[in-house]
Amino acid sequence: MQNITPEEVKERLDKGEQLNLLDVREPHEREEFNIGGIHIPLGQVMMQADELENLKNQEVIVYCRSGNRSGQAAMILETMGFANTKNLSGGMLAWQSKFGQ
């Protein structure tokens, strides 16, 4: 698993790049603020990994509130054969402190 900064992700999104984003927060957290992507809470990642099967050989950027749960999710995905997972450093807290809502 590698880390990726909010600045890198925002720059790529601003350029119109289609990113494979995975939000592993709880539904109420996602409702408050999100940057898009697939929503699978951390506790359900293993059970719902088949929804991500088509992304196994692609870059998947995982995010959460602070970067802890997304780091765990990225490691889980790696053990399931995902080749290119990246954890959004600092999560949505870092994103919001840099870019607001």
Results as ranks from 00 to 15, higher is better:
V9D: 00
V9H: 03
V9Y: 04
K10D: 00
K10A: 03
K10G: 00
K10H: 02
K10T: 03
K10F: 05
E11W: 09
E11L: 13
E11F: 11
E11R: 14
E11C: 06
R12L: 06
R12V: 07
L13N: 01
L13R: 03
L13F: 04
D14L: 15
D14T: 14
D14K: 12
D14N: 14
K15S: 10
K15F: 07
K15V: 10
K15Y: 06
K15G: 04
K15Q: 13
K15M: 09
G16Y: 07
G16L: 08
E17V: 14
E17Q: 11
E17G: 06
Q18M: 10
Q18N: 10
Q18F: 08
Q18G: 02
L19S: 03
L19Y: 07
L19D: 02
L19V: 12
N20D: 00
N20G: 01
L21M: 11
L21S: 07
L21Y: 12
L21D: 05
L21P: 05
L22G: 02
L22I: 07
L22P: 01
L22V: 08
D23M: 11
D23F: 13
D23P: 05
V24C: 02
V24P: 00
V24D: 00
V24K: 01
V24E: 00
R25C: 05
R25M: 08
R25H: 05
R25K: 05
R25E: 02
E26G: 09
E26R: 12
P27H: 07
P27L: 12
P27A: 13
P27G: 05
P27T: 12
H28G: 01
H28I: 15
H28Y: 14
H28W: 15
H28P: 10
E29I: 14
E29H: 11
R30Q: 04
R30E: 00
R30T: 12
R30V: 15
E31H: 12
E31I: 15
E31Q: 15
E31L: 15
E31N: 11
E31D: 12
E31S: 14
E31C: 08
E32D: 06
E32H: 11
E32Y: 12
F33G: 00
F33T: 02
F33H: 03
F33K: 01
F33L: 08
N34D: 14
N34R: 08
N34G: 06
N34S: 14
N34H: 15
N34K: 08
N34C: 13
I35H: 03
I35C: 04
I35T: 07
I35R: 04
G36N: 06
G36Y: 11
G37I: 13
G37L: 09
G37C: 07
G37D: 02
G37F: 09
I38P: 00
I38N: 00
I38K: 06
I38M: 07
I38Y: 02
H39Q: 07
H39D: 04
H39R: 06
H39P: 03
H39N: 08
I40G: 01
I40D: 00
I40M: 03
P41C: 09
P41S: 08
P41Q: 08
L42C: 05
L42P: 01
L42D: 01
L42Q: 03
L42M: 10
G43E: 03
G43Q: 05
G43T: 11
Q44T: 13
Q44P: 01
Q44V: 12
